[in-house]
Simulated scan of single mutants.
Amino acid sequence: MRSEVMLENNTHIPIENKIDQINACIKSIHGDATFELVSITCDDIGYKTPNFTTSGIFRLHGQVKLLHNELMWWCVILKIIKADTEEKDNLEHHNYWRREALVFESGVLRDLPDSICVTECYLVEEQQDGTIWLWMDNIKGEYANTVEQFSFIAKQLGRFNGAYLKGIKVVPDHKWICRSWLKSWTTASRIYAPNMEAYVSRLSSENEQSTWDWYRGILKNIDSAIDSLQQLPRVLAHQDLSQMNMLLVKKGTSLSQLVLIDWQSMSISGIGEDLGKLFGVNLSLGIIPPDQYLRFQTSLYDAYLEGLRDMGWQGMQD
């Protein structure tokens, strides 16, 4: 006779109705071993800045009893994605809401260059309320903070992109992979931009006025500058390389693996666009200290080029 599962649900989601799904995830974790589910705890991980299309991210964990009454721990991550505005139901939108579910269902992540590792998705489950539940492996790793760690990531990105440039890997051609991510993002972001003209009268110093003139010049030419990126060689890109989406996982005594999570923004982009996102987003978040921006910028750029050369790509002459 099976004992009753101990359940502690610290969230609003009806996890008590998902025992079969939890068992399926545990079976993937422990292989074909016979087990009995002992306990389930469901916690909200407290992610404070979710994507507009993310309803919540939760950690489910507990114990199972294997043969000979051996107790083992299990843990999975549950991410719930949802529809948002009408524009995010467009395949070409940078934040097309179904994209990450399609990434996992397609298996495209199983054929990435070996410089990038990914989390395993056990189940992609559509709900009656229109949301999609993604049941994923729980990855334990370290977030990048130092220039050495960020440079390691930049080098792996170079190797990642270089594999497509040299034909070692073929860029996937699924219609739901964004083709103009940066164009879509900058266009959509304009509705959130403040009216800067209202602040111009407050500018007092010559340096502030010079900065404002520089900014206006960027705005005036931004569309043509972004359009010019379409001429760059195309590679598969992640496009959301904030600190929390990059995990450094120890392999052996000294080596690390780069694990990228959250492939919602997957795109086919120009070479170097992911490097720019890596630097820019973490500088804007304060992860890269503003007073060290030049040191990080130089180190990341050099590391990215080193990664490209590791794969045999020497430049446009290739």
Score class of each variant (00 low, 15 high):
T49V: 08
G56S: 11
L232A: 15
Q257F: 02
K27P: 01
W135H: 10
K79V: 04
D20Y: 03
V64G: 04
M6L: 07
I218Y: 08
F152I: 06
I153Q: 06
E86V: 11
I268K: 09
L102P: 01
G158F: 06
L294D: 05
D223E: 14
F52I: 11
E142L: 13
W214R: 10
W97S: 06
Y143M: 10
L275G: 07
V64S: 09
S55T: 07
T11E: 10
P172H: 01
P172I: 03
L134Q: 11
S224R: 15
Q264T: 04
W97L: 11
T211E: 04
T34I: 14
D302W: 06
G286T: 04
L285N: 13
L102Y: 13
N282A: 03
S106G: 11
M244P: 05
K155M: 08
I218S: 00
A237I: 03
G270P: 01
S28D: 12
S39G: 10
L112T: 04
S299A: 15
W181I: 01
S106Y: 09
I271E: 02
N221W: 02
R59D: 00
S256R: 15
L109R: 08
N10H: 15
T146H: 11
I222A: 00
C42I: 05
N10E: 02
V108G: 04
Q230Y: 06
L7D: 01
E142H: 15
Q149E: 15
F52K: 13
Q149G: 03
L7F: 05
Y301V: 08
C25H: 05
S106P: 09
S284I: 07
N95M: 10
C121N: 11
C121F: 10
H93N: 15
S224Q: 15
T49N: 13
F150N: 02
E306N: 07
S189G: 04
Q292T: 01
S204I: 07
K220D: 14
T119Y: 07
Q149M: 06
W133C: 10
S189C: 11
S224C: 14
S204Q: 13
G31P: 11
P194N: 02
G130N: 13
I15G: 05
Q231S: 06
G217E: 13
M244F: 08
Q63S: 05
Q21N: 12
G315C: 09
A24P: 01
I26K: 05
E87F: 00
Y293I: 02
R159K: 15
